[in-house]
Write a protein that binds this DNA or RNA. Structure first.
Lengths: 106, 106
DNA sequence: GACTTATATTAGCATAGTTTAATTTTGTTC
DNA sequence: GAACAAAATTAAACTATGCTAATATAAGTC
């Protein structure tokens, strides 16, 4: 139809762009990214995260809520604690790639 | 020093987190992400991008400025046109990985 | 140098996101 | 069920972003 279509290696369907932008936006906040880094490939209670990131329980809770809402992290209750973890291994790999791409000297 | 340190596979140095968060935030906007998808691995004048993304020249110009400022895209003048492109191949690879991670059915 | 094309800049307004502080809910232990 | 611990919720204040419309700059053409 349009010769530009063939030249575009990246899918630019509105729906996909929206999805990706929502996820990137969720991760694109220093405190939320720090929460993700603290979690890494493990599962931690909210309390532990609060201790690591250096802000209030309320603030962490709100940011965790955003990450959960956007599907970046999962959480489950265990007794009186809520355990959080990064969604899946694929996302952990992506975080690794992000680190390499954005945190090296260019 | 602390047994948690060894358990953390992800670098959580403040400086790196800041850097990555800034980049992710820049990419985490639908219009900016669309600009990046339109660019792909090619170089295009601002005008072409405006035509593709469906908003005003002023708006595109401002978003391009943000992407440039955060080091996501590069641009150069050629005559009366400004040609834009995604920073480097590594970032293109990352965009590819982002697509896979965020745009597939999970 | 007037006209056109391409891009950038500015200011104002509207909306969204962030943090703080206080309160509430949920679960556990005695 | 009182007291405590863990997490969530709410509201208010603050800050940042995004968009529009208008204007400015820069280069190319006649």
């Amino acid at each position: 139809m349009n010769e530009l279509v063939e030249k575009m290696p990246f899918d630019n369907k509105e729906e996909n762009i929206q999805k990706a932008a929502i996820a990137l936006k969720a991760m694109g906040h220093p405190l939320r990214l720090k929460i993700l880094c603290v979690l890494g490939n493990q599962e931690f209670p909210v309390m532990d995260i609060v201790d690591q990131v250096g802000t209030t329980q309320s603030n962490v809770s709100q940011h965790i809520d955003i990450l959960r809402e956007k599907g970046i992290i999962l959480s489950r209750r265990e007794g009186s604690k809520i355990l959080c973890r990064v969604r899946d291994a694929e996302l952990l790999d992506l975080m690794d790639a992000m680190q390499r791409t954005f945190c090296q000297i260019h």
